[in-house]
Amino acid sequence: MSSTKIFLKSSDDKTFEIDETAARASETLKNIIDGGCLDGVIPLPNVSSNILPKVIEYCKKHGGDNGSSKKIANGGVDKDKEILPDYDEEEDKREKVRVDELKKWEEEYMDFDQQVLYDLMLAANYLHIKGLLDLTVEKAASMIRGRTPDQIRENFNINSDFTPEEEEEMILIEDEWDDEWAFD
């Protein structure tokens, strides 16, 4: 499929190229393209040059489809899928392979530290890329689940800004198995 090239300029004045079909994964870019303001470069003052390639990589993978990425982010194939009489097993297998492949890609794609996660989340928010925003939000949530506030702070490099008086008034909620798992 031939496609028009679009140029994006990062906050630190570096220009990147992206196919129009891929760019349409972003609602913001889609609106600009459809608005017909395509002469020249689209400036993205909120996205830096170390994040923009990452965003483009996502758009290339998901260009043109905004829906399916959400399905993957929410856990992939529906386990309870009802088996209908004219159910195509081959088609289902191909679908499963496709989903597995995409999950694997996402796993590798999402392998970065909390600083990149933060920037990517804001970029996805700014560019209205729902699938990517869901993906990053889910990653952040997974860095919270099953952890103590101390462990969460460490994961996100946050300092507690509560006063000692507030700490004094604390009610404690404890996980019985913290002893064994807290420090793995």
Partner: peptide
């Protein structure tokens, strides 16, 4: 004992 930092505030 489990960590005492796993805490909530009393409101």
């Amino acid at each position: 004992m489990a960590s005492r930092n796993s805490a909530v505030f009393m409101r």
